[in-house]
Every structure is written in C-alpha cells, then in structure tokens.
C-alpha cells in the first residue's frame, strides 16, 4: 500500500510516496515555475525507482492550495486525471496545514504564510499538542494531535497577526516558527511582532526544517486523512484558491454598488 503525493502550489515542485509505515521518499525539482514540464517526469521517476506501479497506489494525495493559482491547477488537474484513469481515490490536502509535518517535533506555533500579493498573505497557524480528546484537534495516524490556532485564509498581515496573538495567548504558546514565501515581504514585521510580544521566533529559512511547500509533508498529512476515510472521487477533488478571480470580485463590487444606488 502506498500513496502518491503531489505538491505544485509553491515555488518548488515536489512529489513523494508514503507507505503504510509512514516511510516517505521525496523527489524535488529545481526551483522555478515550470511545474507543468517537470511534474509527470518526476512522478514517472519516483514510481519507477521504487518499483511501484501507478495503478497499485491506494490514493493520490494533492496539495490543494492556497498558493499560485496556476500551480494549484497543475497539481489538482494532474491528480484528478490520474485518479480518474487509474480508478483511484483522491485526498485533498490543505496546503497550509501540511506544514505541521515540516516541524513534527516543534513545541510552538507553526506559522506558514504565503505571499498572496495585493497586501495579503495566505496564512494559517497550528501547534502540536498532547491531549487528543478535544474535538477541534486533528489526530494523526500515529496517535498524536495538533490544533489549529489560525484557520487557513487570505488575510492582511495585520489581520493575521491579530488572530495569531489572540490564539497564542489562549494556548499559552511562547514560540513561533515561520515558513513560506510570505516571509519575503513580511519576515521583518513578523520578527518585530515576536520581539515586541516576548516570543521566541525561528525563521525556517535559518533552520533545518524545509522553508517552503513540500510533498513529503503533503504525503504525511495525506496518509492521516486517508486513514480517517477523508478521501474523495476525482470529480470531488477541488482546488482551494481561498480567493475569487479578480474579474469576479470586481463584478460583484460593481453589482453591490449598483444595488446601493
């Protein structure tokens, strides 16, 4: 039994396979946005090198967003077509949440932020915890649990920080590890926030943990979801853009303004 995992939503494309025991192998492409060119050859490579037949996969797990709209679509449409043609189930993996597996031993808040432009970030915050009884906690395949501090969404950085501050106080968390390409525009402000609140701050770019999206984490969270029966058919596998198309937003604004008149 194995799961194939696909990650194309960020700056670096990767694919991974995970077996029943949770053993992961990952292949990464060079950074750069040619995910469409690189994805199938990498899937071909990882299955061949591990002597796995595509049709023997238990399910296809894919990072469903948020992230680059184009990147999300390359991964999700590939996963849909693979699941359809191979007759397999799919697992839609929330990209932000997959970052919990970037730092499975970390005791503080895991904070992925992606540059969403238009002065926003796609952000979420999560923390591993001991008690697995709380209904709000997500249990993992090996009996551990993590909780959501800030639900994944598109926020201005100030909104994100506001929600995070409140959640950290409530959960009595004193340390932050920050990930994602949102650190480029917002890293300095994030660091200042942590300093002003007396919180420990780790920039994943300076740590051992991967700094951006990775298929290994998608595979791990994908296996958890698969074990809980949270699979779907290829038709039900949908991206989570977390934002409307620009034209759609403008049209709605215009209609709302017209209605007010």
């Amino acid at each position: 039994m194995y799961l194939l995992a696909i990650e194309t939503t960020g700056p670096q494309l990767s694919v991974a396979i995970i077996d029943e025991q949770g053993r992961v192998r990952e292949e990464k492409a060079d950074e750069g946005f040619n995910h469409l060119t690189n994805l199938m050859p990498l899937i071909d490579k990882i299955t061949k090198e591990n002597a796995l037949a595509p049709e023997d996969a238990a399910a296809i797990a894919v990072s469903r967003g948020p992230g680059s709209f184009t990147g999300i679509r390359i991964g999700v449409s590939t996963a849909r077509a693979l699941a359809q043609a191979l007759g397999l189930k799919a697992v839609a993996v929330p990209t932000l949440e997959s970052f919990v597996y970037h730092a499975p031993e970390f005791k503080g808040a895991i904070c992925p932020i992606f540059d969403a432009r238009r002065s926003q970030v796609y952000g979420g915050a999560y923390a591993w915890c001991d008690g697995a009884d709380d209904a709000l906690m997500q249990k993992t395949a090996d009996g551990r649990a993590y909780m959501t501090l800030v639900p994944g969404g598109a926020y201005t950085f100030d909104e994100y920080i506001g929600l995070l501050k409140e959640a950290l106080a409530k959960a009595r968390i004193k340390e932050i590890m920050a990930f994602g390409d949102g650190m480029r525009p917002c890293g300095e402000r994030f660091k200042e926030f942590a300093a002003s609140e007396g919180l420990g701050f780790i920039d994943a770019r300076d740590a051992e943990a991967p700094a951006v999206q990775s298929a290994a984490s998608v595979a791990r969270l994908g296996l958890d979801l698969y074990r809980e029966g949270k699979t779907c058919s290829f038709e039900e596998l949908l991206p989570d853009y977390m934002r409307k198309a620009e034209a759609e937003r403008k049209l709605e604004e215009k209609r709302a303004a017209d209605a007010d008149r």
């Binding site: 184009t70 077509a81 693979l82």
Partner: peptide, 19 residues
C-alpha cells in the same frame, strides 16, 4: 491562454502516463 491550455496538457499527460 496559458492557464487554459495547461489544464488540457496536464490532463492529457496524466492519462497517457496512467494508461
């Protein structure tokens, strides 16, 4: 349109690989 084309191309490649 690049975004439109790539849906067809990604899908076709996955079909060709899977089958």
């Amino acid at each position: 349109l690049i975004g439109a084309l790539l849906i067809g191309v990604a899908t076709a490649k996955a079909y060709a690989f899977a089958k």
